[in-house]
Simulated scan of single mutants.
Amino acid sequence: MATRPFSQFPAEEQQQVAQACMHVGLAPEMFEITDDSNGNGARRVSVRRVGTDNQSAYETGPDAPWVEQFESDLECGLFGQVTA
Rank of each mutant, 00 (worst) to 15 (best):
V24T: 09
G51Q: 06
S72M: 04
F31M: 00
G61M: 11
Q8L: 09
M1Q: 10
N54D: 08
M1H: 15
S46I: 09
R43D: 01
C76Y: 13
G61R: 15
Q55R: 13
G77R: 03
L78Q: 13
R43P: 02
Q14C: 03
S7M: 02
Y58I: 14
C76V: 15
G80A: 07
N40R: 06
Q81Y: 11
S72N: 08
S46Y: 06
Q16K: 15
G25E: 06
S72T: 13
N54R: 08
C21R: 00
S72V: 09
C21L: 00
E68N: 15
G51W: 12
E29L: 01
V82C: 05
R44E: 09
N54I: 03
F70Y: 11
G61E: 14
N40D: 09
Q8D: 12
Q55T: 11
V24I: 11
A42V: 05
H23T: 01
A20G: 10
V17T: 02
C76T: 15
P28H: 03
T83S: 06
T34L: 10
V82E: 01
T52E: 05
G77A: 05
L78V: 15
E59A: 14
H23S: 09
V24G: 05
R4N: 13
S46T: 07
M30F: 04
R48I: 10
G51T: 04
S37F: 06
Q55S: 15
